[in-house]
């Protein structure tokens, strides 16, 4: 009878206990340092416990000498032709890995070149934009608006001229009443708000906003002016304008 046969249950219980507490196996460097006795006592105790958890590693560590070459007739003997076959298979695998590594490298080289070109292009564009912003510029077009209902007999709405990068919309306020704050709102023909902001009343009782031409496509717009006093907001005037197709 196998002297260990009745210990099967103990073994199972130990394996069950081991699998419950299984930590990652130690690294090869740790194992070799352990074998050479180079670890501090606590570290050594931890590795010892892991060797019990991973008996395959305990067996590996126990092989202090290189194994002898298996001889014909031994269980683990590998015949010469089998070695040749395995060697060919490995060479094939190595070549494939090499080709794949080459492809990955090529992919990264191309990606890096593309990324570098894009970065350069964006860099140049940014530099150009910054330089242009730092340069003196021709004054923008100024457009005086008239409040709705006070544009005279024809009551024709103001039409924006289409040249220039930006347009300075100047809205005069005829109401003499002063408010602590004012707010302008730009809406489209459907009444949806496109932009809104607090504005200052200028010394000549006008309000001015600088609008990039590209912000306003062809169509009809309305600018609404409000006086704000605490939580209250009073509608003071509306200004309609038309942007023709360019």
């Amino acid at each position: 009878m196998n002297p260990k046969s009745n210990w099967h249950a103990v073994h199972e219980a130990l394996v069950e206990r081991r699998e419950r507490m299984m930590a990652d196996p130690p690294t090869a460097e740790e194992l070799l340092a352990y074998r050479r006795g180079e670890l501090a006592p606590e570290h050594e105790a931890r590795i010892r416990e892991l060797l019990v958890t991973y008996p395959a590693l305990a067996r590996a560590i126990a092989q202090t000498e290189p194994p002898e070459e298996p001889r014909p007739g031994e269980d683990d003997y590998i015949p010469e032709q089998e070695i040749d076959r395995r060697w060919k298979a490995l060479r094939k695998r190595l070549r494939k890995n090499h080709r794949e590594a080459g492809r990955v490298l090529q992919f990264f080289q191309i990606s890096t070149a593309v990324a570098a070109s894009l970065a350069l292009a964006f860099g140049v564009m940014l530099w150009k934009a910054r330089s242009e912003l730092g340069q003196p510029r021709v004054a923008w077009e100024e457009q005086l608006l008239m409040p709705d209902g006070r544009r005279g007999i024809s009551d024709a709405m103001v039409t924006l001229r289409t040249h220039g990068e930006s347009v300075l919309l100047v809205a005069p306020l005829l109401d003499p009443e002063q408010y602590p704050e004012y707010r302008l709102e730009l809406t489209d023909s459907a009444g949806d708000t496109l932009w809104t902001s607090a504005v200052k009343r200028r010394h000549n009782d006008t309000f001015a906003i600088l609008v990039p031409r590209s912000f306003l496509g062809a169509g009809t717009y309305k600018i609404l002016l409000y006086g704000v006093d605490g939580g209250q907001q009073v509608h003071l005037a509306s200004y309609s304008l038309h942007v023709p197709r360019s």
Partner: peptide, 28 residues
């Protein structure tokens, strides 16, 4: 099993894994 010391349990466990005495000695 909980009554065993850590050292006893480790040796028992490796012995039950069919390791030889000298292998256990080197490993531990």
């Amino acid at each position: 099993i909980a009554d065993l010391t850590e050292a006893q349990r480790q040796v028992l466990q490796l012995w039950l894994e069919d390791m030889q005495y000298n292998e256990i000695a080197v490993a531990l």
